[in-house]
């Protein structure tokens, strides 16, 4: 089982995270070096997933499938966000050169908490592949790839998310564990 970086478990840190998350335009926090030890290799079994006009990518079981459902992580999520998220699903998603997802893929989604753990190594910004979140009348939120970072974002109905097209010039693939929690 993965271990959360002790810094993120201290009460002062959690209090700060809760304040930052609650005050953001689109509620969001990004935690670098979230785990004491990030998984070293990424070789999950993935299958192609394509719906033209929506997404083109590979998907499989989350690398840290058990951890995302563990009580340790759930307690952390509750304290960091002040919410009561209920686990819905976790997936490992890979975006190779030419892959993408588009914003309207989740236009019928209810309120949810998205957690993205970044397993992408040696990435260049010009290759794209970053995460984008939009909410009506708010500035969009852009999250660049950063190995070992955990991103937590709260999305309301009508808020949208996608992963930007990955350039054919990219020498690697973007890898993320993407976890969805339902909210009341």
């Amino acid at each position: 089982m993965a271990d959360i970086n002790f810094y993120y478990l201290e009460s002062a840190t959690l209090s700060n995270l809760n304040r930052i998350f609650s005050s953001a335009d689109i509620p969001f926090i990004r935690l670098s070096k979230f785990l004491n030890e990030a998984p070293k290799s990424v070789e999950p079994k993935l299958s192609s997933e394509e719906k033209i006009g929506y997404y083109h990518r590979k998907i499989g079981n989350a690398l840290l499938e058990d951890f995302w459902q563990s009580s340790d992580f759930n307690v952390f999520l509750r304290k960091a966000t002040g919410l009561k998220p209920r686990f819905r699903e976790s997936n490992h998603i890979s975006y190779s050169p030419g892959d993408y997802s588009l914003l309207h893929m989740d236009e019928s989604e209810p309120s949810r908490l998205l957690v993205v753990y970044d397993l992408t190594k040696e990435w260049k910004h010009e290759w794209g592949g970053y995460d984008l979140y939009t909410s009506p009348d708010k500035d969009p939120l852009v999250c660049n790839r950063d190995f070992g970072s955990l991103m937590i974002v709260k999305l309301a109905p009508g808020d949208l998310s996608c992963t930007r097209y990955v350039s054919l010039k990219s020498q690697f693939s973007a890898h993320i564990d993407c976890i969805t929690y339902d909210l009341d």
Binding site: I52, G53, L102, E126, Y165, S167, K169
Partner: peptide, 9 residues
């Protein structure tokens, strides 16, 4: 360089 237009109808 790098510009694109993804699938649409």
């Amino acid at each position: 360089l790098g510009d694109f237009l993804l699938p649409h109808d």
